[in-house]
């Protein structure tokens, strides 16, 4: 493994980290905007419903944090933050890039769809304020898959950066 290839591997891994938080953050901003537009329209007529809509407006924002967690984990596990820098092979670098990209796409798509689900829930609350508890469930179901994507990302990053395969390749 040449130093140039190791450098390419590291570059790919950090590009994956960038995509994870970049896409997740963009999706969250988009999702919150969708829900906020709807909530603002409801508040024009019924400002007293703000409290019941707040959770649904905020829910699409969680994906941004999940992307941030994935990126930070990738940086700590590879030693970019607080530790000795790992020699990442080209293959591991490609894998980490894919993990970051996959995580980013899952968070991006789920945040936008959660924004749409929240907007629909907000419409329901506008008509039937007593249904606020059940209306939160719709966007919450979308959240499940953002969490699953984060868990898969954490597992991939953790095991891809284990010392064992790196030792096996004589890279440690």
């Amino acid at each position: 493994m040449t130093p140039e290839l190791i450098e390419v591997g590291r570059g790919l891994a950090y590009a994956g980290a960038g995509l994870a938080f970049g896409l997740a953050g963009s999706g969250s901003a988009w999702g919150i905007a969708i829900a906020s537009h709807q909530a603002a329209g409801v508040m024009r007529e019924k400002p007293e419903l703000f409290g019941r809509m707040l959770v649904m407006i905020a829910l699409p924002g969680t994906q941004g944090f999940y992307g941030f967690i994935a990126a930070i984990l990738m940086m700590t596990q590879t030693g970019l933050i607080g530790g000795s820098v790992l020699k990442i092979s080209l293959g591991t670098g490609i894998a980490l890039f894919g993990v970051g990209l996959g995580c980013g796409i899952a968070q991006f798509v789920s945040a936008i769809n959660q924004g749409n689900a929240s907007a629909a829930g907000i419409s329901l609350v506008a008509r039937r304020p007593e249904a606020a508890g059940r209306a939160i469930l719709f966007p919450a179901f979308v959240e499940t898959y953002a969490v699953v994507a984060l868990l898969a990302t954490i597992l991939f990053i953790t095991f891809l950066t284990q010392p064992l395969p790196l030792e096996y390749l004589n890279l440690q």
């Binding site: 905007a33 537009h37 709807q38 909530a39 329209g41 019924k46 907000i122 419409s123 506008a126």
Partner: peptide, 13 residues
């Protein structure tokens, strides 16, 4: 989404 504001208002009306 750009129709969200007015649609939210209609939900109340």
């Amino acid at each position: 989404p750009s129709w969200g504001f007015v649609s939210g208002r209609l939900s109340v009306l």
